[in-house]
Design a protein around this nucleic acid. Structure first.
Lengths: 222, 222
DNA sequence: GGTTATTTTAAGCTAATTTTAAGGTTTTGT
DNA sequence: ACAAAACCTTAAAATTAGCTTAAAATAACC
């Protein structure tokens, strides 16, 4: 197991690092919040141990930024016993566990192991509309695999529910900005998507809004 | 039931042996760590009761050697109440239970019986999916030995069950963070893994999700 | 220090996806 | 109704991602 340890008390950090390494846990340590955040973004760690009081950038800030960017690495917060408020805040922001200082290293080891025994609990973020379920994780629409462009487009349509998505907007988002504006790209892929909707027997149709773009329609609604 | 009891306090050992035998538990006793290890390797015992403080070789060492060699005999650790660190370490190394000295023999009897009623806790460390069993302890997939990288990758796939694991994520975790991004590493090893899946006649296939990563599929599910 | 196992590098190959292009259909304005 | 514009569909060509192998480099082992 490899963890990132962000802590500004060097003496404590050294001791903890040493003890964790005896328990076969590799530790990368930094005393700097910004540096910590940079490292934390790499998909390298099984867990992050995060002190709340840090120079430059507080542990809570780091936690918040990571979670908002979709990072789901298990995080254990550390802080002085008094800072109860922080505990609540931390767990709210998506920390996985909390340990008050001073703590026994064995306790930390036990919690790290506990965290990593259970699989990382990332929630399913399925996009839904009528009888459609799009899973961006593996790019499947009701089980049917989509290509990258197909996926991008259906995602935009699903995110807008039954609002119209402009063709130019799709073009810009899916094919970089400086396209030699080829509306036909979008048309080709909408055509492919319609074929796949038929294939999976969905009742949803992609309606063309002439001059504007496309929108999803559920004929059974209304 | 027959157990191996490794304990250097002869007086205590005699008493415990006597009492256990009255509860219909056969006891082989040794006061020597090395001798104990030799005996423990025989597939002869339903359980091993292991004192931590031993001459020549500590109980934790014995435990570690046994578990690393794949031995799954249930083990109960004994130690003085104070040695809390040892408790954590012991359970981590794969001990099945822990008893602080001094203890009541009836308590030991109860725990031995409990251990032999439930299947060895060890099982849970195996990663399973369909007909696959991966043992990270000795890095074998249904008995077939894997290399380190192969093991890391199959572990990640197994931990994610049938979710897609991104190629970049694998790259980051298996080959350090700042790689000269070589997707081909992952491709080569996935290829090796597929060869091994065929070799062990598993029905599981590693499906490619183009542009994203890989996931395990059990064709017999669905 | 030599042998074996593992990892990295590289290259040719295959298959999937994307782009291009052309001909057909529908809609809209006059 | 007719022409023009917008859109649809399809298939082929082009491109890209991924697969597989084998050889070279490195690490592990005795």
């Amino acid at each position: 197991m490899r963890i990132l340890y962000i802590e500004d008390e060097k003496l404590l950090a050294d001791a903890v690092k040493h003890l964790l390494e005896k328990s076969d846990i590799a530790v990368d340590w930094t005393d700097d919040g910004e540096e910590g955040l940079r490292l934390a973004k790499k998909p390298l760690y099984d867990a992050i141990v995060l002190d709340i009081m840090l120079p430059k950038m507080s542990g809570l800030e780091i936690l918040e930024i990571l979670r908002k960017s979709g990072n789901k690495t298990p995080i254990i917060m550390l802080s002085a016993l008094s800072e109860i408020e922080d505990k609540v805040k931390g767990l709210e922001l998506g920390a996985d566990d909390y340990l008050a200082k001073p703590f026994k290293t064995s306790e930390l080891v036990a919690r790290l192991n506990a965290l990593n025994r259970r699989p990382p609990l990332r929630e399913e973020k399925l996009l839904k509309f009528a009888d459609l379920r799009y899973n961006p994780e593996n790019r499947t629409l009701n089980g049917e695999p989509l290509t990258e462009k197909e996926g991008e487009i259906i995602k935009m349509l699903l995110e807008s529910k039954d609002k119209t998505v402009q063709k130019d907007y799709i073009l810009g988002r899916v094919w970089g900005g400086d396209m030699v504006s080829e509306d036909n790209y979008v048309e080709v892929y909408v055509s492919y998507l319609r074929k796949k909707l038929k294939k999976i027997n969905s009742r949803v149709i992609i309606k063309t809004v002439r001059g504007l773009g496309y929108k999803l329609i559920d004929p059974e609604a209304e």
